[in-house]
Design a protein around this nucleic acid. Structure first.
Length: 221
DNA sequence: AGGGTCAAGAGGAACC
DNA sequence: GGTTCCTCTTGACCCT
């Protein structure tokens, strides 16, 4: 965990928890009565001039999420929004407690996905260079990879589950068939019914020899 | 409205 | 003891 990730967040709300948890207990205490994930308490875009723009206030006729994605994708595709606290305390007085969700741009997602395909974990150097490249924090890269691994694992679990379910179904079918077959064999061998000719039992590949033995038995009688 | 998605918080385990 | 990862959870946003 890179403590520096959150150094600039001077609201005291964003304490850089998560991986690392430096002095967890201390931070936990600080967090008492504070909103979670307050690092993204206000959404800003960085304008081409380098100004922090509160995009929520500027476009009142568009819905929240639409504003975020529209602005980000169309106007400033290479910048991600950040928080009030990260952008020099603008509007610190306007510190509402609702956390705003970061949405990665298409480009950022693509690059992250491609990197993930190459290696699903990153060393600190790779993490830093990716963060620089995408204009994100190393913590965000770390979190993305963590969540991505979790998604991969979940998907794999679902696939495994389906395979096991199928396999289980096959075994059940096989079990049912063998039981039926056993029933037939018992009938054939019963002294009460010596001349009964059974329908040809369908043997599983592993016990074809049973049929042979059965025929032998009948011949001897 | 409600369910899905996903970035991020939180805590514990594993590793060195 | 610090770092990284895993797992579960939370909450914002999106979609229908």
């Amino acid at each position: 965990m890179e403590e520096s990730d959150h150094e600039e967040c001077n609201t005291g709300l964003c304490l850089g928890l998560g991986g690392g948890h430096v002095a967890k207990k201390e931070k936990k205490q600080k967090l008492v009565n504070k909103p979670l994930m307050a690092c993204f308490d206000l959404a800003f875009e960085i304008s081409p001039k380098g100004e922090a723009m509160n995009i929520y206030n500027n476009h009142s006729n568009i819905k929240k999420g639409e504003r975020l994605s529209l602005e980000r994708q169309q106007n400033y595709p290479n910048v991600t929004y950040s928080t009030d606290s990260e952008n020099n305390n603008n509007n610190n007085n306007n510190n509402n407690d609702s956390r705003k969700k970061l949405r990665l741009t298409k480009e950022q997602s693509t690059i992250l996905e491609n990197t993930f395909k190459l290696h699903n974990t990153l060393n600190p150097v790779q993490k830093q260079s990716l963060a620089d490249q995408l204009n994100l924090k190393t913590r965000q890269i770390e979190v993305w990879f963590q969540n991505r691994r979790a998604r991969t694992k979940l998907k794999q679990t679902e696939v495994d589950y389906e395979l096991l379910k199928k396999h289980c179904q096959n075994l059940s079918d096989e079990n049912r068939r063998l039981k039926k077959e056993l029933q037939e064999l018992k009938l054939v061998q019963s002294p009460l019914c010596p001349q009964r000719t059974p329908s040809k039992p369908k043997m599983c590949s592993s016990c074809d020899h049973k049929l042979f033995k059965l025929n032998e038995l009948e011949n001897n009688n």
